[in-house]
Design a protein around this nucleic acid. Structure first.
Length: 98
DNA sequence: CTTGAGCGG
């Protein structure tokens, strides 16, 4: 299917459309979701971008480490929120973490 | 009119 990308350290002035266009420049953006506080309605400054696996990998390495609005843009593969089948040993899709 | 943590319903 698709791969979820975690986008953090985003400027508070950023919107889903900006992130969508930013990632769309590197691949096909399936969906963009910015996380904001549900109780205060205040933007947390991070979001999630759903893209194709190959496109996501390219967008991550292309946008990760870049700067947006003067802040370092953080782009990485997001965790798996769903899938109650049971996380494989400790859960958390780490690829190269200790 | 406000802020800065890496991971959402």
């Amino acid at each position: 299917m698709s791969k979820t990308i975690y986008v953090g350290n985003l400027p508070f002035s950023a919107s889903e459309d900006e992130v969508r266009e930013l990632f769309a420049a590197h691949g096909d953006v399936l969906s963009v979701k910015l996380i904001s506080d549900r109780e205060t309605g205040r933007p947390r400054g991070f979001g999630f971008v759903e893209m194709d696996e190959d496109a996501a990998a390219g967008a991550i390495q292309a946008l990760d480490g870049s700067t947006m609005g003067g802040r370092s843009l953080r782009v990485n593969e997001a965790r798996e929120r769903g899938d109650s089948r049971g996380p494989r040993r400790g859960g958390g899709g780490d690829h190269g973490r200790y």
